[in-house]
Design a binder for these strands. Sequence first.
DNA 1: GCGTAGATCGTCT
DNA 2: GACGATCTACGCT
Length: 221
Amino acid sequence: MTLRDRPPVVSVARAFYQRATEEVARDLLGKLLVVRSEDGSVTVRVTEVEAYLGPSDAACHTRGGLRTARNRTMWGPAGHAYVYLVYGLHHCLNVVTVGEGRGEAVLLRGARVEEGLELVRRRRGGSVPKRRLCDGPGKLCQALGVTRALDGADLCTADAQLAFLDDGVAAPALEVATLPRVGVDYAGEAASWQLRFLWRRPDSAPRVTGGTDPRSPEGRR
DNA sequence: GCGTAGATCGTCT
DNA sequence: GACGATCTACGCT
């Protein structure tokens, strides 16, 4: 792809988030997520997400209409970050969907680092293999420097610290696996709902940065 | 590569 | 007081 062919990079507008949560989840695969901080900026490409469908979803923090101090953001307007702590030590990043009063969101579970690799390595530890840097919700937050300080952050303002960008890359339907969500066995029937979306071959996407790719052809997997 | 155990503390009942 | 939208290290195959 030449510079001329490359589609423009645009930030994702609020209307994108104001849709059915499953659609937002599916469409977030392939989007770029940029997080800016004092340490620098990191850009990743989303490869794995989960949808949480509000009061009727027994695996969701807003199940049964539950309103607490923690999930307050989740009940708010779409296009904001919902960040919480699990197991007392790991952060999880979500994007609020649909609209105010719905309690629905998409959890970011996995991504591939596109820019800011040095900073990610500093945060995650130098010995971690590149493909393992962001392959879990807690690891992703650590790599991006996301903490509860970003809970409630608006993703759609011009100066957003946290934002999704669209550079024209999308996960082809054939490469997207639909699976049950992870770690929600307590949720009864909802535990088997196919609301986890995994882009199985993100490496096949055209590279956006970095010029020539020195890697040898894709070998083992 | 797979399975298991322990860490660790905020949140909710 | 119990539990959790997880991670890492470790042992085994």
